[in-house]
């Protein structure tokens, strides 16, 4: 994955403007890879996002935390235009997402332009969404061959390399139905990486997995983070957020309640809603741990 690392040797310090600094100031290195300003989104009159501001710098890992229904998945999908935003702006690498700004007048992008923007952004879904009629190898090769017009031989070599990277070098010819959930999700990660994205979005990548399969997926994500990939991760895995994230964002009710370094937000939350959410998560974790322990010592 040497070609996806950025020129910056280390991750930027996370000094972030709290609100509307001029997003169009294109000062190269300082410019965040993702900038969201006052993002608004409603479904049938139900406001899901009520003005989200977020900056993600190159090489950063940002975890979005929060109870279900807080809008974190919707926000993630807006970055990739799987949902269209109603208000505010999102820029990825300086490009306005979904629209063309013509002297203040916005124009919708054509389907083709939208597809071009999405190429640069990899996405991993909660339910994997692998193509079931293709083998693992074909899944990974599909987009480079069809979208980037990479030659088949080259795409195959690269796909095998990526499958190796996610620990599935021995299963190129398996169909998704023949793989476990954790293996499927790792193929899905390889598939997204095959497009050499600037940014990876993870939508609760471990929520559909059996507990014993979560670790293998998180390990792959951790390696990706270590290689300098810019990642936005919606997750309930507090351990992952605490250890891997450069920045965590706690959302509730369509707003950002609290954000900062993981050790501040997770270990020392300031806001009441953050505290109660984390307490609930911890209680669940303890329960799971207790279950695991009782399993380890079966009755004789």
């Amino acid at each position: 994955m040497s070609d996806t690392t950025t020129s910056e040797p280390t991750r930027e310090p996370t000094t972030r403007p709290t609100s509307g600094a001029d997003a169009r100031s294109r000062t190269g290195e300082d410019r965040p890879l993702v900038r969201a300003l006052n993002v608004l989104k409603s479904f049938h009159g139900n406001e899901v996002l009520k003005g989200i501001d977020l900056d993600v710098h190159r090489g950063e890992v940002v975890c979005l935390l929060g109870p279900s229904g807080s809008g974190k998945t919707t926000f993630l999908r807006c970055i990739n235009q799987l949902e269209e935003i109603d208000g505010g702006r999102i820029w990825v690498d300086g490009d306005l997402v979904g629209f063309r700004d013509d002297g203040g007048q916005l124009h919708h992008l054509t389907d083709k332009q939208v597809a071009t923007q999405r190429r640069e952004i990899g996405m991993v879904f909660q339910r994997f969404n692998l193509f079931p009629h293709m083998t693992a190898l074909q899944n990974v090769m599909e987009a480079p061959v069809q979208v980037r017009r990479v030659g088949k031989t080259k795409a195959r070599a690269r796909a095998l390399e990526l499958l190796e990277q996610v620990g599935l070098g021995d299963k190129p010819n398996a169909y998704p139905a023949q793989l476990s959930g954790g293996q499927q999700q790792r193929v899905a990660i390889a598939r997204a990486l095959a497009m050499d994205p600037k940014l990876m979005l993870f939508d609760e990548p471990t929520s559909a997995l059996d507990p014993e399969l979560v670790g293998e997926v998180l390990r792959v994500m951790r390696e990706l983070a270590d290689q300098g990939m810019t990642m936005i991760v919606v997750t309930h895995e507090m351990g992952f957020a605490r250890d891997v994230a450069d920045h965590v964002v706690f959302m509730d009710g369509g707003v950002v309640v609290e954000q900062g370094k993981p050790k501040d937000v997770i270990s020392n939350p300031q806001h009441e809603r953050t505290k109660s959410f984390l307490k609930r998560m911890r209680a669940e974790d303890d329960e799971a741990a207790a279950d695991a322990e009782s399993l380890e010592t079966p009755d004789a």
């Binding site: 990739n80 799987l82 389907d111 083709k112 597809a115 071009t116 999405r118 190429r119 952004i121 990899g122 996405m123 879904f125 339910r127 969404n129 692998l130 193509f131 599909e142 987009a143 069809q146 979208v147 899905a188 598939r191 997204a192 497009m195």
Partner: peptide, 14 residues
């Protein structure tokens, strides 16, 4: 499944 369309779209397929 509509996730199939979404996965294809997310990969930049038209």
């Amino acid at each position: 499944d509509k996730g199939q369309n979404e996965a294809a779209a997310a990969l930049g397929m038209n």
